[in-house]
């Protein structure tokens, strides 16, 4: 095979992996939008907050240490050497559930029946609040995320594919980051778990009922407020997974909240209400932007991915305005 063909294959493979990383973020948006019609602007910040909390527990950091020290003149930073990663993940999940509960009690319950734009604005406020709160709680310094997942180029794949190129050509084998493979596996498990939860559990069916029709769900006794707590907790869990994966690549820092920007074209393409849409949309965006950069990017100065993802999503919108898997909204007058 020619190295050019193999390189294109490599780009597609890595595009799929990048797409899954985008999908991980998009999933959180979809969960909340499906159940409540809220476009959660704070989803990226939730990933940051969850990752900060996880690293904080792992490393034994004292929350609000800067504030405590400033107020009482103390010099506390850590309460010990930290804790086991699994326990830290469980505790972080509990924090995200408490966050969802408080959010419902303090904010969302006052927003019932408000226009979608008001709910959207609320999440903008929430994003800014959480950014500052996260900084105050865990500090603004860059933290290293290590949950024991392997990373780095797969030597096995490289060696296995080295001989695929035609003899006499320069080819170094195919590249894939092992962390991306783990992310793909975890994303698949996450989607299976979410699907099973929504199909086969009572709560899951209630979630679907609320997603289908709020009013009808209320009339059969489903508590909208409980559903919102569950949905925001689930979105918190998805945010934690996304935070771990993205944080493993770049360290945990404010920029983690900007991964939401990578999820937007995925949502436009896949639809705001479909979990499979978030996955397929992510894969299409990932492969599309990487292939474009590989084939045309170099000719037009490079760094095309950020804008090309949106162009691709908008191109799909011309044919399916509701996104690939979105529900067609028909309003009869």
């Amino acid at each position: 095979m020619s190295p050019l063909f193999l390189n294109a294959l490599e780009v597609i493979l890595n595009g799929l992996m990048a797409g899954i990383m985008y999908s991980l973020v998009a999933l959180g948006f979809v969960l909340i939008f499906k159940a409540s019609g809220i476009f959660n602007y704070a989803q990226g910040v939730m990933a940051l907050f969850a990752a900060l909390t996880l690293v904080g527990f792992q490393t034994g950091q004292v929350p609000f240490a800067h504030l405590i020290n400033a107020m009482f003149g103390t010099e506390i930073h850590h309460w010990g050497s930290g804790m086991n990663t699994f326990l830290a993940i469980i505790l972080t999940m509990i924090v995200m559930i408490i966050f969802a509960w408080l959010l419902e009690k303090i904010v969302l319950k006052h927003m019932v029946n408000q226009a979608p734009i008001i709910l959207f604005m609320t999440t903008i406020g929430l994003a800014y609040f959480m950014e500052g709160f996260g900084d105050l709680m865990w500090g603004a310094d860059i933290k290293t995320m290590d949950v024991g997942l392997p990373s780095g180029g797969s030597i096995w794949l490289e060696d296995f594919t080295k001989g695929w190129a035609a003899e006499g050509t320069e080819y170094y084998g195919m590249y894939i980051d092992v962390l991306d493979v783990w992310a793909a596996g975890i994303a698949i498990l996450l989607v299976i778990a979410l699907t099973l939860f929504s199909q086969y559990t009572k709560t899951g069916r209630a979630l679907r009922a609320v997603a289908d029709d709020h009013q009808a769900a209320l009339t059969v006794g489903i508590s909208l407020r409980t559903i919102w707590i569950i949905v925001w907790s689930l979105a918190g869990f998805v945010a934690l997974v996304a935070g771990i994966m993205w944080g493993s690549k770049s360290g945990v820092q404010f920029s983690l909240s900007l991964i939401a920007l990578k999820a937007l074209p995925v949502l436009i393409l896949g639809g705001f209400t479909s979990i499979p849409g978030a996955i397929i949309g992510g894969l299409i965006i990932g492969v599309g932007e990487k292939l474009f950069e590989f084939s045309i990017g170099g000719m037009i100065g490079g760094a095309t991915e950020n804008w090309f993802a949106y162009v691709l999503a908008l191109a799909f919108l011309m044919f399916r305005p509701q996104g690939l898997f979105g529900e067609k909204i028909i309003e009869r007058v």
């Binding site: 780009v11 990048a18 993205w246 920029s255």
Partner: peptide
């Protein structure tokens, strides 16, 4: 020349190219 757009959270394309360019 290998540009990276702000903020630079995702650089897979750039590093695949660098790996090929050696």
């Amino acid at each position: 020349l290998i540009p990276v757009d702000h903020p630079g959270q995702e650089q897979k394309s750039q590093w695949l190219q660098l790996r090929r360019d050696r």
